[in-house]
């Protein structure tokens, strides 16, 4: 009898411990964090810091905070981490879009300048 009771007690204790572990360590939002990482990296590649410095800064700050929150143990922290990562991603995406728009505008301005120069040149040529 004694031999039978010991493994049962061990099993019960293990089960309790496992449940306790589950409750105290919620899963960090890894997918969301990764998506935010990628968005921030690509915004930096698109010169987001040059064309959208404000969005870029908040994206970096929020991303760092999201990672920091993910290291904590609380369920509430995980929710906070997910929200921060989502916002960081939105900020970074906006920085990317603004950078592209800025570049497109620069190209157009260059073209307009060229067109103006061309027009003046040809007018000078035909006038003279």
């Amino acid at each position: 009898m004694k031999l039978h009771l010991v493994p049962l007690r061990v099993l019960l204790m293990g089960g309790v411990l496992a449940l306790a572990a589950c409750a105290s360590t919620p899963q960090p939002p890894l997918d969301t964090l990764q998506a935010a990482d990628i968005s921030v990296a690509s915004a930096e590649k698109e010169s987001g810091a040059e064309f959208a410095p404000l969005e870029m800064r908040t994206a970096r700050e929020k991303l760092a905070a999201a990672h920091a929150a993910a290291l904590k143990k609380d369920d509430k922290d995980m929710t906070e981490s997910r929200r921060l990562a989502d916002e960081a991603r939105a900020d970074a995406d906006l920085a990317t879009s603004k950078a592209r728009l800025g570049k497109a505008n620069a190209v157009n301005q260059e073209l307009q300048k060229n067109g103006k120069a061309l027009r003046q040149e040809t007018q000078r040529n035909t006038g003279g």
Binding site: E87, L94, S97
Partner: peptide
Amino acid sequence: YLADQKINIARANAQTNFTE
């Protein structure tokens, strides 16, 4: 906040498209 940023993204993308 997210909706605000996404509207801004949509506007910027549309403007880029228009510029191109």
